[in-house]
Amino acid sequence: MQKNYFDRVHIWGATWNYLALLVMFIVPVGISVAYNSWPDLGVIGKVLATLIPLYWVTGIIEVVTYVPMLGAGGTYLSFVTGNISNLKLPCGLNAMENAKVRANSEEGEVISTIAIAVSSLTTTVIIAVGVLAFSPVLPKITADGSIFKAAFNNVLPALFGALGASYFVKHWKLGIAPILAGVIVLLFAPTLGVGILMFVTIVVSLVGAFIIYKDLWYDDLKAARAKKKQ
């Protein structure tokens, strides 16, 4: 019974997933067709040469990380609607904790999927209403003389400061090396794009994690090697 339900979720998830892939291409294709403006393939090639190593490697890491935490239905939905780490993941985990169910159980699968679907609907409604309400006043808010200009110039430090604070409290040891690495890289390459910088800081952070938390994997690795030799 349990296996049947999980199998069905995978079939539904995969179907919606591939439909979403098609729907997503409506955006660039629609823009290019409507305005008769197709991008230069050379430029797109150059841009993707920068983006693909970062996005696609991160994509693999994210899939491997989130599936065990969110279950199948929740993961399929999350990857279509995005904002996973800052919204869908904590929302799904919070709902499973409130309902006292475990991820990867049938109950966990149901609760996580409902939580993430509801979160996707809520986000979509809030953004849509916000966008429609803000469109008349937006130019005034972000204009050069506006009092809010200074605030909007600093959204990224505000967002990543607030987001980082809770992570750094729990894992302060992990934060030091990647921030230092990022600052040092920027001192020597001040115009380096965020994409490459992020790749450097993620690698430094992961290497740091493996070194700092050696006790979590080294003994198992040694035992596995010893077993292989036998």
Binding site: T58, I61, T65, S85, L156, P157, L159, F160, G161, L163, G164, Y167, F168, K170, H171, L174, G175, P178, I179, A181, G182, V183, V185, L186, V194, L197, M198, V200, T201, I202, V203, V204, S205, L206, G208, A209
Partner: peptide
């Protein structure tokens, strides 16, 4: 957490 901290660190840097 380390992967996520890596992303945040780039913007903090």
């Amino acid at each position: 957490a380390a992967a996520f901290i890596g992303i945040i660190s780039a913007f903090i840097a």
